[in-house]
Each structure stands twice: as structure tokens, then as C-alpha cells.
Write a protein that binds this DNA or RNA. Structure first.
Lengths: 202, 202
DNA sequence: GGGCTTATTGGACATTTGCGCAATAGCGTC
DNA sequence: GACGCTATTGCGCAAATGTCCAATAAGCCC
């Protein structure tokens, strides 16, 4: 393997870890898998990461954080709160293989037992909730949305999405990808007093 | 170890497996752990279970199935759909240590990797959804509830509950146990066109 | 009490895992 | 072009895991 700058190599290792995690899940990811993905030796990973846990936590934060940033960037392009919320759902319910959601399932299950992972996952989930909360508060100011408790509504919208996604990823055919999209948008419409179809963008 | 009836021994193994799972989680449960918990040899477990997957699946089914039966029994004591739904929430959001919810988190995460487990978890989740769906349909007949798509509404109510519970179990202090109860009931009220407070029983 | 069935044992086995270490080789410096 | 630093290798080690199996012993029927 070509010799690289420590910074570059570290990035490459995290990227490779991410690829493996999305394919096999956190629990089944091994150092050797990452090395193979990277096209390098297993010893190299340990030259940069002190432990497997550090590797996992770092990769998870990178992946989940990137999703959040991407969605937030898309939302900010919305011209008004309604469009922002539509963009939010577009980004969150895009069907790109759901690999990201299995990652979250693993993280939530492991959170109780891995303090580092719990901290990251909690911080990111709260950021997601605040993203939604901000949209709702904007919608209340413009009068487009109606809601008595924006914070609670935001947690409900997020939890509903996660709960539906969970069914899709874990069980596959009891809740389909398009049902996740339709039902969660409909749930938000009901929650915020919107006319049916307002959040459907296609 | 004292010799036991196959039926009794099987029960004992499942009980021991459950104890280990609740302590260590599904992913970290090993045959040797179960044997130690049981106070018997590891070979004995395989004399009753053909594989580790079967063992895990059976234990999960026992625990999660019992919860479903208990809730269903409570619901059936409700005199009308509204009371039934209240009883449902009482049973589902009772705070008995959340051990049950961590079990579900493990199951959902492991479902992708353990076919037998996925089958059971899917079947149980669908049973939960049908329990809610039945209540809603009853409520529509009596005119107490208003809803255009009972099946979708039931999935939403269940997913919202699971999503909120998930936050509570995984992260602890971003969503509290009482918020799960309050917010999920409020979500159902909104979903079914009920007056605020209808589902609050205390 | 003897014999038969089978519950139970305890370890062997192959595989996989995270991790460490001595050896090697790539790149900059003089 | 030689030298030194260190990125990189590739193997080895110990521990853990699921599974299997021959040996043992506990209970039951005659």
C-alpha cells in the first residue's frame, strides 16, 4: 500500500470502516474486514486506532453526522417552513438502501452498553429534533403550521419516522419504504394541522 | 445437575437465556453464559436447541410474547374503545425498568443477522399493530374515533411509541419515561381526532 | 437389583476475533 | 546516493465462540 500522510490515512481508514459498517452492521464489523476494504494490512488499523471501539465510534459519528449536515443543508434551501419540512422528509426518507438506518439500529441497541457511542448518538438525535423544532417554530410564526408544543411535536415527528424506518429495516415487508414516506408525512400533517397532501412533494 | 423432564429443562434453559439476555444483551449472549446461569454444562443447551439462533429466538419470543398477551388481556377488559386505548397505553408505557424495551432494541438490530429472530419479531410487531387497529376500528364504529386509514394510523401510533421509547432507553435523559407516556398519548389523540386529555387516565 | 433409556457431562475442534511485534519498505533530508 | 524516520506489512498469539461427540450417570420398568 502506498505510503500516506497520517491525516489522510486516518480519513481513509474511517471511510473504509464506514463502508464495511454500512454493509455488515456495527456488530459484525471486524478489523480484518476494514483492512480488506482498505486494501491494506490489519496491523495498519491498529497503528492509527488504539482500539476497535474507538474505530467504530469515530466512523459512526462521521456517517451519522454527515447525514445530518446534508439534511440540514437541504432544509436551509427551503423558501418557507412548509418547503423546508418537505425537504426534510425528502432527505430523511430517500431510499438509498437504508444502510444508514441499520447503522442507527445498531447504535441505539449498543448505546446502553457503550458510553462513547451513547454520547454521540444522543447528541445527534437531539440535533435532529432541534432541526425539526426550528422548522415548526418558523411555521408557527408565518401561520402555516399550528401546534401547541413545538418541542414535543418535533420529538413525535422524529420518533414516528424512526419507528417506521425501524420496521422497514428490521422486517422489510411489513412496512415498505414508500409507506414510511407516506405515513410519516401524513403523520406530520395531522400533527401540525396541515391539509392532507401538503407535505407530499411528488 | 439434577436430571429433569425435557419440558421442564427446556423451560429452565429459556428462563436462563432470558436472564442473560437482559443482563448482557442479545448480541453478547453466549452459550457458555447461559450454561453458567443455568448451573449446567454447555453441551446440555445444544441437546435441547439445535442452534444458538433458535435459543435466542425462543427466549425472545417467550418474553415479548408474554408482554403482548398481558397487554391484550388488559385491553379486552376495557368497556369501550376509548378505555381500551387508554388501557393499551397504560400497559405499554408502564415504567417497569425498561428492560423489555432494550430487548426489543436488541431484537430489531439483530433481526438483519438472525433470520429466526426476524421472523418472530416481525410477527409480534404485526400483532401489536393489529391490536391497535382493532381498537381504532371499534372506535370508528361507535363514532368515538375519527380516522381515514385505521391500518396506517395503527402503524403510526405503534411506531411513535417505539420511537419515543427508543430515545428513552438508548439515551435516558433526552426523553423521559413520563414524556413517552404523555407525548405518545397526545399523538394518538391528534391522530384519532380526540379531545386533548381523553387518553390521560391519571 | 439389573438393564435400558436418555439426560447430562466435559472437553475437543475449527473458526474468528482483537491486538502486538519484529521486519520491511517508502519518503524526505543532508 | 546514503541515512533516518516511520508508515506499512504479515504473521503469531491468546482468548472466545458455536458446535459436536463419546463417556457418564440418573431415573424408570421389569
Amino acid at each position: 500500500m502506498a505510503r500516506m500522510t497520517p491525516d489522510d490515512r486516518r480519513e481513509a481508514i474511517i471511510a473504509a470502516t464506514l463502508a464495511v459498517i454500512q454493509r455488515r452492521g456495527i456488530a459484525a464489523t471486524t478489523v480484518r474486514d476494514v483492512a480488506a476494504e482498505l486494501g491494506a494490512s490489519s496491523g495498519l488499523i491498529h497503528h492509527y486506532m488504539t482500539s476497535m471501539d474507538e474505530l467504530i465510534a469515530e466512523a459512526f459519528e462521521r456517517a451519522a453526522g454527515a447525514d445530518l449536515l446534508a439534511t440540514r443543508a437541504l432544509v436551509e434551501q427551503g423558501q418557507n417552513p412548509l418547503e423546508q419540512l418537505r425537504f426534510f422528509f425528502d432527505s430523511y426518507t430517500r431510499s438509498d438502501g437504508n444502510s444508514g438506518m441499520q447503522l442507527w439500529l445498531d447504535a441505539w441497541a449498543e448505546a446502553a452498553r457503550r458510553p462513547e457511542l451513547r454520547q454521540i448518538s444522543q447528541r445527534l438525535n437531539e440535533a435532529w429534533q432541534q432541526l425539526i423544532c426550528g422548522i415548526i417554530e418558523g411555521g408557527m410564526r408565518t401561520g402555516e403550521m399550528n401546534c401547541t408544543d413545538p418541542a414535543a411535536a418535533a420529538w413525535r415527528i422524529l420518533s414516528l419516522l424512526d419507528g417506521l424506518h425501524l420496521q422497514e429495516v428490521a422486517h422489510g415487508d411489513s412496512v415498505t419504504s414508500s409507506q414510511v414516506s407516506t405515513w410519516s408525512r401524513r403523520g406530520a400533517e395531522i400533527e401540525l394541522g396541515l391539509v392532507q397532501g401538503t407535505l407530499t412533494s411528488y
